[in-house]
Design a protein around this nucleic acid. Structure first.
Lengths: 199, 199
DNA sequence: TTGCGATCCGGAGGGTTCCTCCGTATCGTA
DNA sequence: TACGATACGGAGGAACCCTCCGGATCGCAA
């Protein structure tokens, strides 16, 4: 059997998480890890023992939120409302989640597409939730048939990232996020070959 | 009057540009500048005298392409074909231009939105070209009325960036670029307020 | 309570990249 | 050819990443 974690280790782990949350919020996902360790009252070595790299730290912070996103998809799926509206609601929530820290969208895309990541299980749940919502919307003809959950995520995260980067010199643009999402949804929702509406 | 540039300076300038082009193509926009200087057979100080930072180097490489993009917009505008198709053609060309180096979309967004950038004049030309194409498409009702050229650029560059980042672990996805563009265009082309037409 | 492994901590230090600074070398004109 | 203007080179400081291991701390067992 394996011993329980020593309580100083646990305390440091939690302090690091809290401090990292603040640092990422204030300075984006590239906030210096040495600063985080210092602010947590801990040596840099301790940080690296608990979190072997920046992504591991980010992953620990995001895990919970991703599971929440999967749960929201499940809830929307069961509520049985308008499928396209459900998709819109969900993607908006996803977008809001990725607005948390500067450069978070980049990190999310990295974590998502890395099969070695510890986030892969959580990401799989999110993707499954998205698949269900997408599939339902597709059945009522509300969504073009060739779009995937992964692509939706790429587009949403890409749009948010672009927003962040443009906003660096034109602050205030972040509120445009929902308009971008609308635009994306309309693209996703459009019939597959919309500009020659033959059929 | 001001003296002409010394010919050794000119030679080094051109060598640096060529070498940077290769390095960025091979290793993305974050290729080490010291390596570029070395490969160009030049000291690091010389690189920094010609190009005060990475963006200046990138700008020198992109300037010409951006002007080409503006010219393409002008050409499409004058050819007087289907306005939405013209927009699609143009955005596809823009997207292809940003696929050149890894992480180029991020750099483009940065250069675009920085009014201090030396790229600002070229970017203005590109934006004007986009505005004209967009306006024409809007007049025939082929495009929602609330989308701007800047937003189109953000969406396209964001999508390409996301593609690049996802492709890091799933190579080959880059060919999906044109499908993403289609999806975006369909969103841009959708009617303005499709589901809540309330004023 | 004390002793002693097992566990965990801290931060020095090596590596990478950025960018600056200034003594030295080269250029091109007079 | 000589000299001022111009450009070069690379040492070095700063920021950040991450590793490594001697030493401190914890917590069970006696």
């Amino acid at each position: 059997m394996t011993r329980p974690v020593r309580k100083d280790a646990l305390r440091n782990y939690q302090r690091l998480l809290e401090t990292a949350e603040h640092a990422f919020t204030a300075h984006g996902t590239h906030a210096p890890l040495e600063q985080i360790a210092r602010d947590a009252g801990v040596g840099i070595g301790t940080l690296y023992r608990h979190f072997p790299n920046r992504d591991a730290l980010l992953a620990a912070l995001l895990q919970e939120r991703w599971i929440d996103q999967a749960a929201l998809a499940e809830k929307l799926h069961e509520e049985d409302g308008d499928p396209v509206e459900a998709l819109r609601t969900w993607l908006t929530a996803v977008a809001r989640g990725t607005l948390l820290y500067r450069d978070l969208p980049d990190a999310c895309l990295r974590l998502m597409s890395d099969p070695e990541s510890e986030m892969h299980r959580a990401w799989k749940q999110v993707r499954d939730g998205g698949d269900r919502l997408l599939e339902r919307a597709r059945r009522v003809g509300g969504v073009r048939s060739d779009v995937t959950t992964v692509e939706m995520f790429a587009l949403v995260h890409g749009a948010i990232a672009a927003l962040h980067k443009s906003a660096a010199h034109h602050p205030g643009t972040v509120s445009d996020a929902s308009r971008m999402i609308d635009l994306l949804i309309d693209g996703i929702a459009a019939p597959t070959a919309p500009r020659h509406p033959s059929t």
